[in-house]
Structures are given as C-alpha cells and as structure tokens.
Write a protein that binds this DNA or RNA. Structure first.
Length: 592
DNA sequence: GCCGTTTTCGGCCCGACTGTTTTCAGTCG
C-alpha cells in the first residue's frame, strides 16, 4: 500500500542524517526525523495529498510539505540532492554502526577521508585512528564489534521490508492477463526473521508477459537475469526478486520446492526415494517409469508421501516430517485466532496516532478486546504523569462500548529499572487492567544482575507480560546476556506471560527462545507494540514467529476469550476498584 | 523545522553512560 509514504520517509530520514552529519542545527535534524516517522506511519497515501493536506500530518509544516510536494511532482528533492553532493553516501552508512554517531562519522571523513564501512575497518587495522582526537582503543574495539554485528545480518533485510515489496510484486503480477495463481515463496513464506531475496511464483500457461512485466516495476534498478521461465531483478533498495513462472499443472510441486527450506526439501525427497518415487519442482514421479503422479497442489504432493500438508512456518527440518508421519503436527496459532492486541501506544507518549484513531483501527480489525499500554513515568523522555494516565483511563472507559464487539483494556508499559523495580506503587498499578513490563536501558549489566532484574519483575503481583524480553534489535543490538532458563522458570512459576513482539526489527522472543520457554510451561502474548495504526499489522509477524516455534492458540493468552484472559491478568494484584468480581484462585500461566 | 488551553518566539525528551579526557563530548533510548 503506502509505498510513496515509505519513499518519502526514507528521503526525509536521509536528509535528517545528513543535516546532523554536517553539523546542522540538531533541532532541525530532529524535526525532519519526526516528520519522516509521521509520514511513514500515516495511513493515507501521501501521493494523493497536496501541500495543504500534507500539512495536516503531525510535525509536517510548510517547509517540509513543500519539499514532499516537490518530490511527488518531480521525483526530486533539491535540498537532499544538494547535501548529497557534499557528503559521500558511504559516510551516512557509518552511522548505522552502533556507538558511531554523526560527529564521529564526520570526523573520520574529514580527517581520514573514510567514506565506507570497509574503509573504516581497514583504517582500524592499519592503526590510523590512533592519532584521531576522541578515538581511543575502546572506541576502536566498539566499532569493530559493531561492524561484525552488522555483517552478521549480512545482506538480509527485515521481514517487514521484504513483505511489503513481495506483496507489491504479487499484486503487480496478478494484474497481468493469464495469471492463474501467484504468491511469494521462500524464507518469506516461512516467515523467517530476515530475508535474503524474494521468490515470487506464478502459475500461467504463457510465461512471456510476466517476464516482461517484472522488468517494468517502478522500483527496478537492474535486471540480473532474464530468461523464459525465470527473471531476476534488483530493486532500488538493493533487494533481489526472483520471478518464476510454472505451468498451472505443476503449481503445487513448484510451490513446495521454492518454499524450502533446503533441509526440509532434502527430507521430503528422501521420503520419496524410499517409496521409489522422485520429487522435483515439476512434480512427484515414479522413479522407474518417470510417470508423473501428482503436482497440482502441495496437499497432493504431501499426501502421496504419507504426510499431512505441512505449514510453511514449520518447514525447517526441526522434526516436522517425523511429527507429520505420526500425525502429531500441532494445530498452529493463526492470525484468525488472535482476539486482541495487548501492547500498543498512542500519542500520549511516543505513538503517532490518537487514542481514538488507534481504537478505531483496532475495531476495524475485528478484535474482541484491545489494550492501550502507554509508557510509564520512569522512561523520563515520555513525560508521563499520574494525571495524564488517569485522564487517559477515563477516556478509555468512556470509549469502551462505542465499538460494539470490542472491549477496551487500560494498561501501561512499565519500565524495569536496574534493580528490577517498576514505575508506580503497587496500589496504583492494581487499578490497571494489565501491565506490560520491559527493559529500556542499562543493557550492560552483568548476566546475574540482568537475570535477577527480570525475575524480580516477574514476581511483581501486577506485572502480566514481559515486553520484548531480550531487547534485541535485529542486526543492531544483540540480545541481553541473561540466563533465559531461569527467567522462563520464573515466568511459569508466577503466571507471567512472555511477549512475542511483532515489530519486524525485534521479533522478540525469537522462535528458538519461544520453543525453549514453552518447555518451561510459559504462556505467551503476541503483540504488535504498535506506535501507529499501520503497525497494528505487525501482529502477523508475531504470529508467524509463534508458528515457527510450534505454538498453538492454547499457548497464547490473547487468543483466549476475555473472561479467561481477565482471570490470567488478575494474577496476584490487590483487589480493589473492581466491584462485583470475586477473587478467583490464582491462574498461574502454564497450568490452566 | 515545528508548534502553541502559558507562547507567533522560544522552546524543543532528558538523563545516563561511555570513553576520552582532565572537565566533557558523543551516543543512546
């Protein structure tokens, strides 16, 4: 959908970066950043707005509206191009390295003419930074570590970026005459947290129109390969898209083959060999005669091998074949199971949409319940106060019932302090419907301290969900060094759920950690952590991650009916302010 | 550059941490 919004967001963010690198007014840089975020999260396609309506977007004034309008009209933004001419693009890449900001990047460029990550790594090896003011041995070490972290993510992109592009390509192919079926396959269909390239599969009798159409996509930068059945392109963001067209008759076998994973495919082919069959992207064949048996649907292919259809998110060779043969595949949690979202923000703190807008967008998604959980005062930058949160609660109570089928829950996202304490005293917290608690700072404590800190938060009678438990940012910040098994055991013991945060840069917990936590008997909350109405959609990445961890709806508290969810949320909180609700026995997570 | 239930000018997220310094700049959330 809002592709122009994303383009404008990227452009304004680039401008903000370049302003701060060149030592421009910090508030000016901040203004561009804020406008970039607001436009990226704005639900209306900006290419349909004139300068006057652009100014209705929060944090967009005359100057930025004019620049955006100029870009939409001409495809250029003169201000950005001017400053690009002054600073090589590689200098901006440097500030993506953790601990390296605009000031240091500029100093590296001016003093040593470094304008790429590779040049920086070489310069450190050659000890060229030793005489540079402000750069000591520790800084060198941090930079090298940061570069390593970035490279470990490789050329892969976050799932959100890949999904948006893939859905756009699929939509474009579906508009081509003769398209019988079209979908994306590969690691994206398996919902991996990062994606290397995008595989799009089309079923059609004649491949030529598709081979042609894909080279006319507006964001194409390069055609890598162009053949009869397959065309590969690179987009202007550097992402590779492989388009393959197969005859409608081999759709199922092709989809199975191109979805992978490689390890899963090897297993399925082994299974075929044992049955004197041969499996390829063209179908399932008799090994001897070469006669085709099935190929039309994935279902048929798996069935002929003695397997139920295996959901793509399980196809990682993590035991799904054996479980399938035994008829013991889990009934995975799905998007349709999700009855609500339990971690979302509004513009009262760092969200971009109002309470009313967020609630309306949630209602449109058909939720049975929806929680607002703005930040609490200990995260100083959000300027929360008792008055503000109580006023918001009044507003929430007032709006509750306005959307007939959706109930509202008023919660908060608490900050877990260095010693494991949280904002507000217990009696104040008891009046929230739910509390998410998350770590936002002091990431460098030692393993013991971090572990104790999280366990103490779990033990709090009002803390229901640990938000983004490891605080990782994929490719940017490593997960906290914690004893996860200790924390998982504490969650199970205290009836505290662990979050599966659906933000594409977080996906925290990760699939592997979820599996580990489940063995401790923990329950989970799949949340969007939305900061704009558009982010509510991030829930699906959380669901995908949960599927990869073999979770069922039973494992996920926000698939439960409201009554059961409320009993879980009651935990051990002091009873007050909720007349008419009897105290129930403690509904510890993992034992319901 | 944006914004206004105190403001059309003067604020703007504010405090902490880290590593480099020798009193503080840069980065981060």
């Amino acid at each position: 959908m809002a592709r122009p919004n994303k383009e404008v967001e990227a452009l304004l963010q680039e401008y903000a970066d370049l302003v701060s690198i060149t030592g421009g007014d910090a508030y000016r840089a901040r203004a561009y950043e804020k406008a970039a975020r607001a436009i990226g999260g704005y639900p209306t396609d900006v290419s349909r707005l004139d300068a006057k309506h652009l100014r209705e977007i929060p944090n967009v004034g005359k100057s930025i509206a004019d620049k955006v309008e100029e870009y939409l009209r001409t495809g250029h933004m003169a201000a950005v191009e001017d400053v690009r001419a002054q600073i090589p693009a590689g200098v901006r890449e440097l500030i993506a390295i953790p601990t390296l900001g605009p000031k240091k990047a500029m100093s590296l460029y001016q003093e040593l003419h470094i304008s790429s990550v590779d040049e920086l790594a070489d310069a450190i090896q050659a000890e060229k930074l030793r005489n540079l003011k402000g750069f000591g041995p520790k800084t060198e070490e941090n930079i090298l570590h940061g570069i390593k972290l970035m490279q470990s993510a490789g050329d892969r992109v976050q799932i959100g970026v890949a999904m948006e592009l893939a859905e756009d390509v699929v939509a474009a192919m579906e508009r081509v005459a003769g398209c019988e079926q079209c979908t994306y396959a590969g690691s994206l269909r398996r919902m991996k947290e990062t994606i290397g390239d995008i595989d799009v599969l089309v079923a059609a009798a004649d491949s030529a129109p598709f081979m042609e159409a894909v080279t006319r996509l507006p964001y194409l930068s390069e055609v890598i390969a162009h053949g009869e059945k397959k065309t590969s392109i690179r987009t202007n963001r550097g992402l590779q898209v492989d388009l393959r067209v197969v005859p409608p008759d081999s759709w199922g076998a092709a989809l199975q083959y191109f979805t992978g994973s490689k390890a899963h495919n090897i297993r399925t082919r082994e299974l075929a060999v044992h049955q004197k069959l041969k499996l390829s992207e063209y179908g399932l064949f008799h090994a001897g005669s070469g006669r085709k048996i099935v190929s039309r649907t994935e279902d048929e292919v798996y069935a002929r091998l003695g397997l139920p259809w295996i959901p793509p998110t399980l196809r990682e060779d993590r035991g799904e074949i054996a479980a399938g043969l035994r008829g013991e595949l889990p009934e995975l949690v799905t998007d349709a199971d999700m009855r609500g979202d339990l971690h979302t923000h509004t513009d009262l703190t760092d969200g971009m949409a109002t309470l009313e807008q967020m609630i309306a967008a949630a209602a449109e998604r058909g939720y049975a319940y929806y929680a607002i959980t703005d930040h609490a005062p200990d995260l100083y930058m959000q300027r929360m106060t008792d008055d503000k949160i109580l006023q918001q609660r009044d507003a929430v109570r007032h709006l509750d019932g306005k959307h007939k089928r959706m109930r509202l829950l008023h919660g908060t996202e608490l900050n877990i302090g260095p010693s494991g304490d949280v904002d507000w005293p217990e009696d104040f917290l008891a009046d929230f419907d739910l509390c998410v608690a998350s770590i936002h700072s002091h990431f460098n404590q030692d393993r013991d301290a971090l572990t104790r800190r999280l366990i103490r938060a779990c033990a709090h009678p009002c803390v229901n969900i640990i938000g983004h438990p490891t605080t990782r940012h994929i490719g940017k910040r490593p997960p906290l060094d914690i004893d996860l098994d200790e924390v998982f055991a504490a969650c199970a013991r205290t009836g505290t759920a662990l979050e599966i945060n659906g933000q594409p840069e977080r996906l925290d917990l990760s699939d592997e950690n979820i599996m580990r936590a489940k063995r401790h008997g923990v329950k989970f909350a799949i949340d969007s952590d939305a900061h704009s109405t558009l982010h509510l959609d991030y829930l699906r990445y959380g669901v995908g991650t949960a599927q990869r961890a073999w979770l069922t709806a039973e494992d996920v508290i926000n698939t439960w009916p409201l009554g059961r969810l409320r009993r879980f949320l009651d935990k051990d909180r002091p009873r007050k302010g909720r007349p008419g609700e009897g105290r129930t026995s403690r509904p510890a997570g993992g034992r319901e």
